[in-house]
């Protein structure tokens, strides 16, 4: 089995209202060095074998919404 970790994040041009609140909370805790925080999702897949085209297809069809989200992935042993 191979582990594929898919990362889904809101497009940089879109307001991440939850991320903006987290940024504010970090500043309240005096982590002033944080300019911005954005919240994404990680989806960990266990696959029999890694097939790049299939992973891209599942990201585009279901795991991410291309209207608002970007995705990336990494393959782990």
């Amino acid at each position: 089995m191979v582990t594929v970790r898919v990362f889904v994040n809101l497009k940089p041009s879109l307001l991440d209202s939850a991320g903006r609140t987290v940024t504010g909370a970090l500043h309240k805790l005096q982590f002033d060095e944080v300019a911005d925080a954005r919240i994404g999702k990680t989806i960990t897949l266990q696959m029999e074998k890694f097939d790049e085209e299939r992973v891209k297809a599942m990201c585009a069809k279901l795991l991410a919404n291309p209207v608002i989200e970007d995705y990336s992935y990494e393959v782990l042993n």
Partner: peptide
């Protein structure tokens, strides 16, 4: 309907969360 691609666009979290 948006997620089904019947209508364009998407609905995101309210700006005030």
């Amino acid at each position: 309907l948006c997620e089904s691609h019947i209508l364009p666009g998407a609905l995101m979290q309210n700006v005030n969360q």
